[in-house]
Every structure is written in structure tokens, then in C-alpha cells.
Design a protein around this nucleic acid. Sequence first.
RNA 1: GCCCCGAUAUCCCAAUCGGCAGAGGAAAAUGACUCAAACUCAUUCAAGUGUGGGUUCGAAUCCCACUCGGGGCACCA
Length: 831
Amino acid sequence: MTAVDGDPAASETYDARALQDKWRARWQKETPFVADEDPADDRPRSFVVDMFAYPSGDLHMGHAEVYAIGDVIARYGFQRGRNVLHPIGWDSFGLPAENAAIRNGTHPAEWTYANIETQAESFRRYGVSTDWSRRLHTSDPDYYRWNQWLFLRFFERGLAYRKNGLVNWCPKDQTVLANEQVVQGLCERCHTPVVRRSLNQWYFKITEYAQRLLDDMDQLADGWPAEVLTMQRNWIGRSQGADVAFGIEGRDEPVTVFTTRPDTLFGATFFVVAADAPLADELCTPEHRAAFDAYRAQVAKLSDIDRQSTEREKTGVFLGRHAVNPVNGERMPIWAADYVLADYGHGAIMAVPAHDQRDLDFARTFDLPVRTVVDTGEPEPAGSGTATTGDGVLVNSGPLDGLGKDDAIARIIAILGERGTGTGTVNYRLRDWLISRQRFWGTPIPIIHCPDCGEVPVPDDQLPVVLPDDLAGADLAPKGISPLAAAESWVNVDCPACGGPAKRDTDTMDTFVDSSWYPWRYCSPGYDAGPFDSAKANKWGPVDQYIGGKEHAILHLLYARFFTKVLHDLGMLDFTEPFTRLLNQGQVINGGRAMSKSLGNGVDLGTEIDSYGVDAVRLTMIFSGPPEDDIDWADVSPAASLKFLNRAFRVMVEAGAASEPGTDPAAGDLALRKATHQAIDKVTAAVEIQRFNVAVARIMELVTAARKAIDSGPGAADPAVREAAESVAVMLSLVAPYVAEEGWERLGHTGTVAIGNWRPADPALLVRESVTCVVQVANKVRDKLEVAPDITADELEALALASAKAQAHIGDRTIRKVVVRAPKLVNIVVS
RNA sequence: GCCCCGAUAUCCCAAUCGGCAGAGGAAAAUGACUCAAACUCAUUCAAGUGUGGGUUCGAAUCCCACUCGGGGCACCA
């Protein structure tokens, strides 16, 4: 620049903290971001939800990233004049609060609500366009009451039920876990190896929805990351096959197994039952009892990680009994082994060692016969040790001989069907969702256990079942049963059915129940006739854009999808999928790893904000790259962001000082006007496809163009400079709301810049009078022509061939072909 | 072991349909301002797109194989 001498505005830098205080107070007073519930409001609606926060301490860099990204999307909606619902809430039940309470000798509510206030304060400072009137906390009785209400609706439909079985138990947290919460044999939360226990627990019957969860992914193909859909598909794990009933010697009832390869039935040479299934116990003959009991005890001691290791040698014991192959009457020894899972299929398998690697490994360990029934052209599995699992020609299989795999499967299913010993069927890897937790800080399960009446639901009008408030500190220490069991006055109640003495269920619900339906609560906060007002939920829902981390690819997102379908079936929601579009933001990493307290590589958000201001931190998050990418804090520079914001600010200040709002830009400098409209066009396109980093780059270009126009062009008073500066304020408001508001005010405007100010680019200013056309000869650029954008291919070809430079390179070679891509390129192909 | 994603300048990242590899930023260098430094401003700088093939008039972009990095799944019969 060459700072304009004597003009104080020219070198003015903004005071981030002062702007934050000033505009925050104003937004709080004027609440510009409240969604409009007026039925007459027919603007297009936009429902933008950021995954709600868990209140552990203050907001950190990870939060800063999600909310910066979510806010760009929400604010873009506001700018485009949509009726935006952008709410906030806290996922405030859960273990960390309880552990803190045990440590500090307090009630979990103290820690929870103190942290929520801290986060809410930071959140307000962060300048997110939030509708605060809809704020919710899942630990409020007003909220969890509806978890209980929904539980009872599930219970009535048989979708909530209690069963005894082997469950995942975390020895550290002293509670059971759902399948989804066990990651590679470790507790998802504390990474302790999970063990199995036999307990009577509550489940939600998500398996009943397995097929719909799979099918409805078609609706999500455009709006969800493919990766997440793949993970869910794998998790649900549909497999198609057949159930086949095997007679058991010395037992009246046959045992059914599931197989995906019924075509290999003639190759079954032995039979395996899951060692930990009751069936194994039952089938074991007295002579083999001792060996079996010893084996079963050994299996019970194994952790999940050990048990699931594929490196492990196969183990098992013979049970002394035989099964009978329904197609050829062959006797097959029955073994118990731990490579067969008790809770998948029927807990028993027919072993076909030639065509299943696990069975082959087992057969080789225990010297059991291997019979090839599908000739794939590969070496014999018995000798090679490698099972052949591909397609081939059936052999040694009676009526199936000569058929291919698919035909053989169809044929054998037909045969089994005629005999009544088998049928085609589908199995899923997905298990029912175990929701009981033996912990305090969650939603009490609204069931009363009566010695006479059994499981009796708490009547709706007695909800909520509120947590007792006299348990705190050491009372909550994990002891393997729920701390609630110790609250005698709370536990002992009259049975709602018979009036006799009864006891409350003392478990609480998995907190993923809380987060499975919260978006709908946002639509009608405070509603007291149900969890939400269906009319409102149907008006706003489904969520147009959901923003959150990939760590919930299966857990939360699968549960929320399941809940939405159940709510649909209950007639409470019109739609069947909760989130139309999903954006998984990356992580903020430092030193190669995700920032975390335990690793000590965290960068404190508050410190960064104190140093550079909210706008610069937000801009840093957005500008670092595409939103899905991780941000390595070593690669980014909030200082550089601040530098740019100051440049932008000065442009707005100088334009504001030099002209009045409402100046007609038509009289302004044409080159700058074109740059402005080009920028608007490009920024709009980039925001639409969620390339926010590119949008910022385009705003930077516009600021540079405006700077040049002021310094060495038509000057600050030119109407085009005002138009550019105003556009900067509007577009920048998505990312840096404080500077944008202040700039807008300095440009002479009253009222917020954030709402309804996005003007489309003027098409007349986007057209170019000429474009550069490259003329290639044999793929090398030899000339450039300035041509009209609407030039025809023929005209352009003629021009290119007439080019002296091109002709010089063509020389005496023959022109074989001329490729014309009007108006940008002509390639003259010569021999 | 299987599946998915990625690799562009010193670094972070751009590049409609396959059409001049570079928009933006960082770092660096030079200059202006300054007693000086910082700030600010201006200018400059660099890669032929991980490797090897293929398709094409033309490939960062499409296809195949490989290398490296990241992620997911992994006894589910």
C-alpha cells in the first residue's frame, strides 16, 4: 500500500475481543437466529443439526471445528433467506459425570450442569447462529421422561424385552455394553478388555429392523459418505443361506444349523456346537463330561480379544454323540468348540472342511475327514490346507453332481424343502441392542418387578421415574449391580397392577437412547403431551444436514435410524430416515495424533481465541482444507487468518468512510464489478458443494481486488468498491461473523449482516467479451487467440488454421484431424 | 488376510465433461515504511501431478498393476 498517508482508517486493525463483546450482546438481545414457527411463513425451511456435545469440561478444538463447519451451513441458509432451525443441546447423562462425582463426593448433576454452563458460555462466545430457545439437556427429567415413555411404547410392541444371556461386561466401568460399544474386544469408552457374563438384561429389538435399515440406505446414497454406509452395511451383515435340520442320535428333536453354503451339504464331515451354548451342555455324554467341563471353563476365561484372534489354533472337545446328515444319512461326530458363536445363527454348524477355512483348520487339528464336493480346479484342500471357497462343479453330491454353485444351492433348498428338513433363509450379524446399564447417571428403566404380576410397566401418568437425589459420591461407586439398588425407599414400591409390594428395575438406559431421537425434541421444546409434537417434527424433519464425527458411523447413527423407523411405525413421524445429509468433519490433530487430554498434545481453544479472536480461529478451521479432512494444527496459522481478516476489515472500513449505503453500483468500475460478481458466483458454488476452503480463497481474491481498486484504481469512493466491500461482509459472515457484522456497520448499515443478504451474481457481469483459445499443433500450444465466447466450432477452426504460428509448426506435414472444443481449444493433429 | 479412501511446489491445499497444471494460504527471498524491529504493503520464487503400463488427438482426472500413507472389517458358518 503504501498506507494512504494520514488516513487512520487505512491502518486500522480490529479489536477482536471488543467486537466479540459488542456483537454477542447484540445477538443475545435481538435473537436473529430464532426459527420462525409462524404457519404463514412459507420460506423454504432448513434444519441443521450439529451432533450435541457431551459436557466434559470446556469446549475444545474438536468442538470448535464441528461448530465452525455446521455454522457455515446454517448461516448460509440464513443468508439465502431460508427459515433455519439450528438448535443446540447437551448429551448430559453418562459415565464421566458419575466418575467425577465418585471422585469428588458429589452428585453427578453438580459436575454436569456446571460444565454445561461453562460450555454454553464458550458456545455463545464462539458466535454460532443458534436458536437458544430450544436448548435441551438429556439429563433433565423433562427430557428423560420421554425416554421412559418411548421405552414403554417399545415394550408394548415387543420391541423392548428382557432376556438372559451372555453379555459384554466391562470390568472397569462395571457395566454391560452393547455389541456396538465393544471395539475389537475392548470397551469403546475406557479400552478395557471386555469379558462375557451371563445376565438378565433389557434389549431393544433392532434386529427386527435389520432389513429396513439395509434397504433404506438407498435413500442416503446421495447425502451420506459412502464410507459410513459401507460400515453400516458390514455391521448389519446380511447373509443369505439355508437352515438345515440335522437329526441327533439319542435326541428326539433335530438341531438346526444355518449355512450360507447348503450346496456343500454332502461335504459335511462333522458337526460343531458353540462351547458356551446350553446345547453343548445338553448334548454332552457322561463319558465326555469331565473333558467338556474343563474345556468350557477354559473358554469362559478367555477375553474377547483372545477369543476372536484368527491367529489362534483351533480348540474343541468331542461330545461323544453323533448327528445325522439329512441328505445321506451319514453319522457325523459332534464337537464343542469356541470358534462357533453361541449367539449367531443357531449356535451350531455343519462343518465342511473342504470349503471353509475355519472348519478345515479344525479338521486338521483334530484329524477329522475332509471331503471335496466342489471341484474348483484348485489343489485338494485336504492336502493343501487351503479351503476352496469359490464356484465350481459339484462332485460326490448325489443329485447335485455336475451343477454349479448357484444352481446347486437352489436345488438343495428345493430338496430339503420337499423333505421338510430345511429352508432358504437370511441371517444378520446385527444383534439386538442391549440397553441396560448398571450405573446411576442415566434414565431409570420404567418397569416394576412384581412377584405376582412379573414385569409391570410404570403407568404413563406416573412418569417420569426420577432418579433419587440422595445418592452421591461413594454411593455411586461401581459394585456390579446398579447403585440404584441401594436406594431402598426408591426401589420399593407398590405394584401398579395388584398393589402388592414390588421393586423398581434398578438399571438405567444406555445413553445412546437419549441421542436417538433428540432432533425431534428440538422441533417442539417443552412439549408435554409426548416426546415431541408430531406436526412440528414432520414440518421440520428430517434433518437436512447433520454434522458430526465419524466415530459415530455405526453407534449413534444406526440407533437413530432405528428409532426413526420405530417412531414412523408408531405413527409419530412421516419419514423413515432421520438425516438426509451427513457431513463427517475430520479431527484436529497435533503431532500426528488426535488432540486429547491424555496424550497431552492438546492446544487450548480458549488460549487460541484469546490470542487471535473467535473469527480467526473459525477461519483457520474452515480454510485449512475440505471439511472431511483432518486438520493438523502444525500446518495451519491462526495468525495468518487474523492477517487476512484485518485486510478484509480495512477494505470495509475504507469503503464505508468513502461512500453511503444505497449507492448504485452500476456507475462503478467495471473490472471490479466483474470481479465481485465472479466471486459471488464462485463462493456460492463452493458453499453449495461444501468446499468451504475454496469459498474462503475466493473471498480472499475479492479482498485483494478491492484493495487494488482502492490503492491504485478508481479509489475508495467508487461505487464498485462499496459493492465489493459489502459482498465481502455478506460472504465473510458465514465464517467470521464478528468482523462481518462490524464491517457491515462501518459500511453504514444498521441491523445484522447475517440474514437474507446473499444476492445472486448478476449474470450480465459474469459474461466475458472474449476468451483465450489455445491453438495446439500436435498437442503443443503454439498460439493463443482472443475469441468471442459464443464462437462456432467452424469459425474457430478456420481462425486456428489461419494462425501464422500454427502454420509455421504445421509446415509441410499433413493435417490428419482437427479437434475443436469451442471456445477454449483447438488441436491440430498432424502426421 | 479382505475392502475402501488418498498421494499435485518446502508445507497446507486448488484445478466443471479428459483440454494451457496453480486459485488461495504458509514458509522463503527482495524492496517500501521504521533509528531499528515487529506490523503493514508490494514484488518474486518454485512442482509437471507416488511408480510402471494402457486407452485417447489430448490424462492430475479414465483403466490395470505396484509402492507408501490413512481408515474400516476380520473365526458371523
